[in-house]
Deep mutational scan, measured.
Amino acid sequence: MQNSHSGVNQLGGVFVNGRPLPDSTRQKIVELAHSGARPCDISRILQVSNGCVSKILGRYYETGSIRPRAIGGSKPRVATPEVVSKIAQYKRECPSIFAWEIRDRLLSEGVCTNDNIPSVSSINRVLRNLASEKQQMGADGMYDKLRMLNGQTGSWGTRPGWYPGTSVPGQPTQDGCQQQEGGGENTNSISSNGEDSDEAQMRLQLKRKLQRNRTSFTQEQIEALEKEFERTHYPDVFARERLAAKIDLPEARIQVWFSNRRAKWRREEKLRNQRRQASNTPSHIPISSSFSTSVYQPIPQPTTPVSSFTSGSMLGRTDTALTNTYSALPPMPSFTMANNLPMQPPVPSQTSSYSCMLPTSPSVNGRSYDTYTPPHMQTHMNSQPMGTSGTTSTGLISPGVSVPVQVPGSEPDMSQYWPRLQ
Rank of each mutant, 00 (worst) to 15 (best):
H5L: 13
Y90M: 14
I42N: 02
K55G: 02
L46H: 00
P68C: 01
D144N: 13
K145Q: 10
N9H: 01
E93N: 10
K86A: 06
N3M: 10
I66C: 09
G12V: 03
D104N: 12
V126F: 06
G141E: 13
F98P: 15
R19Q: 06
A33E: 04
V83N: 14
A139L: 11
E93R: 12
H5D: 13
C112Q: 06
M148W: 09
A37D: 05
I117M: 14
R19D: 00
S35H: 15
L46Y: 02
I45G: 15
V30M: 08
R103Q: 13
I56Q: 01
V111C: 10
T113S: 12
E93C: 15
P81N: 14
C40I: 12
S96G: 15
L149I: 11
A99G: 07
D115L: 08
R44N: 06
S96H: 12
A79Q: 04
G13A: 02
L57W: 01
I102S: 10
L107K: 05
D144W: 08
A99D: 01
Y143N: 10
K75R: 09
I123N: 02
L46K: 01
S35W: 12
I66T: 14
G64H: 12
V84Q: 08
V16K: 05
P118A: 14
R128H: 05
S121T: 15
N9D: 02
F15N: 03
T25G: 04
S49P: 00
A79H: 03
Q135K: 10
G64F: 02
K75W: 04
S65Y: 04
R19E: 01
C112A: 13
I117F: 13
R67S: 11
S43F: 02
T80Q: 04
Q27N: 08
C94L: 11
D115V: 10
L146R: 06
R38G: 05
F15C: 03
I71F: 05
E133I: 12
R105A: 12
N50Q: 15
R128M: 03
P76M: 03
E31Q: 08
L57G: 00
V53D: 01
A70D: 09
I56T: 03
L46T: 09
K28C: 09
A99S: 06
R128T: 04
S121K: 00
C112Y: 04
S4V: 11
M148R: 10
G64S: 04
I29P: 02
N9G: 02
E31V: 14
S121A: 05
L146Q: 08
I97R: 06
Q2V: 07
S43L: 01
G12K: 04
C52A: 11
R125G: 00
I102H: 05
K145D: 08
P95V: 11
L32W: 11
A79R: 07
V30E: 03
P20D: 04
G7I: 13
S6P: 13
R67Y: 09
S85Y: 13
I66H: 10
K55M: 02
I87D: 03
L46W: 04
C94T: 09
S35P: 02
V8T: 14
P118V: 07
S132Y: 13
V16N: 09
A33C: 06
R19F: 03
L130W: 15
L32C: 10
I29T: 00
S49H: 03
M137Q: 09
P68D: 01
S54P: 05
A79N: 06
G12E: 03
P81W: 09
P81I: 09
N129F: 06
V8I: 10
S122N: 00
G138H: 09
T25F: 05
R103Y: 05
V84E: 04
S121G: 06
G110T: 11
H34E: 12
G64L: 06
K55Q: 02
K134G: 09
D140I: 09
I71N: 05
A88F: 13
R38C: 01
D104I: 08
W100T: 06
V120P: 07
I87Y: 01
S35E: 13
L106W: 01
N50P: 00
I97H: 13
P39T: 12
Q89T: 14
V83A: 15
E101D: 05
R44F: 01
I102N: 03
N124M: 00
R92M: 13
V14L: 11
A139N: 12
L21C: 03
L32P: 03
A33D: 04
E62Q: 08
S24N: 14
R26A: 02
S74Y: 00
D41V: 10
K28N: 08
S4W: 11
N114V: 11
G64Y: 02
G51T: 06
Q89D: 09
G58R: 00
E93L: 13
P22N: 05
R59G: 02
P22H: 07
I42D: 02
D144K: 08
Y143E: 10
T63G: 02
R44A: 12
N116V: 13
E133W: 13
L46M: 15
S4R: 06
V53S: 02
L106G: 02
R59Q: 10
G36I: 04
R59Y: 03
I71Y: 06
L11K: 04
D140T: 08
I123F: 01
A37Q: 10
N9Q: 02
K55Y: 02
Q47V: 02
I117K: 08
V78A: 05
S35Y: 11
G64E: 04
N114H: 12
S122L: 01
V120Q: 03
S54E: 00
A37H: 00
K134W: 14
R77N: 03
D115R: 09
K55N: 04
L127Q: 15
N129I: 06
A37F: 05
V84G: 04
Y61C: 15
D41A: 14
L106S: 01
M148G: 07
T113G: 10
S85M: 14
W100V: 06
S24D: 11
S96A: 04
S119W: 00
R67A: 05
R69Q: 08
R44H: 14
Y61T: 12
P76K: 08
I42H: 01
I29E: 02
N124R: 14
A131Y: 10
R26T: 01
D115T: 06
N129M: 09
G18Q: 03
L127H: 05
L21G: 00
